[in-house]
């Protein structure tokens, strides 16, 4: 009897990190849908029944109910495994390669506490070190070697708190990694996929269009606009200019300070993608919003079919990069 690969300890972990409401749960549900639609042999599986149920529930909410899935308050206890294709090992006695175990990458999700949190707001806790959420995030980040960092440009435009959510955890993480001797090249050892979310929002798309950053995949039957990873950093930089607090550019600087350039990649991401009319089956510049806003006491809904954009790609990039390095021993 073969062991259940999802029950085995993953080779690496990926931490999904973002401010509350930045779209982590939606991204996870969209990831499941996108992987199912994808030709790649990657899949996401719950690490335990509760995590599987959570994934099923959120995916159904997105697909059937057309609702944006709400995050569970205790989502830190859910874990999933990204299972890649089986690695083929070269045969020792013969030239025929043998199938090896599939790549296993654990996925954990944690809200990033914002501001200077502390149990009572006292001086000793001004850096947030006493906040249990920060501790959980740090634990998650410390045992991960891949990070999916969600940057919500619309939230930044209205609230401008991205740097608040990033600063304390990053500083604390660096402190821990330095103590553990993991700061070898002067940078954190993590690979980080910076996902600029809400790419489907007109303000984000328009910014990309104005900067001439949009491309269309010629194989895409819907002709959906995209921003390549090479250009996504420029989009990120451009969007930082409209931060409500004016501190968004410090996010970019902090990323450059703490992560090696080879280990940073930017993605312009949309979990729900653009609206595509069922009849025309083509992206329409005049009508592409895929979200129907709700009444004051209601949530927004998904308007049409989901067309996730750059949801799989960050995971695959992290998966491929992590698979190429020695499995972590951190548990």
């Amino acid at each position: 009897m073969q062991p259940d690969p999802s029950r085995e300890r993953p080779d690496h972990n990926i931490a999904m990190w973002g401010a509350p409401g930045s779209g982590k749960t939606t991204l996870l549900a969209a990831l499941f849908i996108a992987l199912t639609k994808s030709d790649d042999d990657w899949k996401i599986i719950g690490s335990d029944p509760a995590s599987s149920d959570y994934l099923i529930e959120k995916t159904n909410a997105l697909l059937r109910g057309k609702l944006f899935p709400e995050a569970n308050m205790t989502m830190e206890r859910y874990h999933w495994t990204l299972l890649g294709p089986a690695l083929r090992k070269p045969g020792f006695w013969s030239r025929k390669a043998k199938p090896g175990p599939p790549a296993r990458i654990g996925i954990g999700m944690t809200d990033a506490p914002g501001g200077w949190y502390g149990p009572a707001g006292g001086p000793s806790a001004l850096d947030g070190s006493g906040d249990p959420r920060l501790q959980k995030l740090l634990d998650n980040l410390e045992r991960s070697r891949g990070i999916v960092f969600l940057y919500d440009p619309i939230r930044e435009f209205t609230l401008g708190d991205a740097f608040d959510h990033m600063h304390a955890p990053l500083t604390r993480l660096a402190e821990r990694m330095l103590a553990a001797g993991e700061f070898t090249d002067g940078k954190l050892p993590h690979h980080i996929a910076v996902c600029v979310t809400k790419f489907d929002d007109p303000r984000v798309l328009e910014t990309a269009e104005k900067r001439r950053l949009l491309t269309v995949d010629i194989d895409d039957p819907y002709r959906l606009p995209r921003v390549t990873s090479e250009d996504a950093r420029e989009l990120f930089h451009e969007l930082c200019q409209v931060s409500a607090s004016g501190t968004a550019d410090m996010v970019l600087k902090a990323l450059d300070q703490f992560f090696h350039p080879d280990r940073i990649r930017f993605f312009a991401t949309s979990s729900i993608g653009f609206y595509v009319d069922r009849r025309t089956k083509r992206f329409d510049w005049d009508d592409f919003q895929n979200m129907v806003p709700g009444e004051a006491d209601e949530d927004s809904r998904i308007r049409g079919q989901l067309h996730p954009i750059n949801v799989v790609e960050p995971m695959l990039w992290l998966g491929q990069r992590l698979a190429a390095i020695r499995p972590t021993v951190v548990s």
């Binding site: 929002d201 303000r203 510049w285 009508d287 919003q289």
Partner: peptide, 15 residues
């Protein structure tokens, strides 16, 4: 609006 704009209000189905 007749077409998508920054108001984020969905465009008129009849344009």
């Amino acid at each position: 609006p007749a077409r998508t704009d920054q108001s984020r209000i969905l465009p008129c189905p009849h344009r």
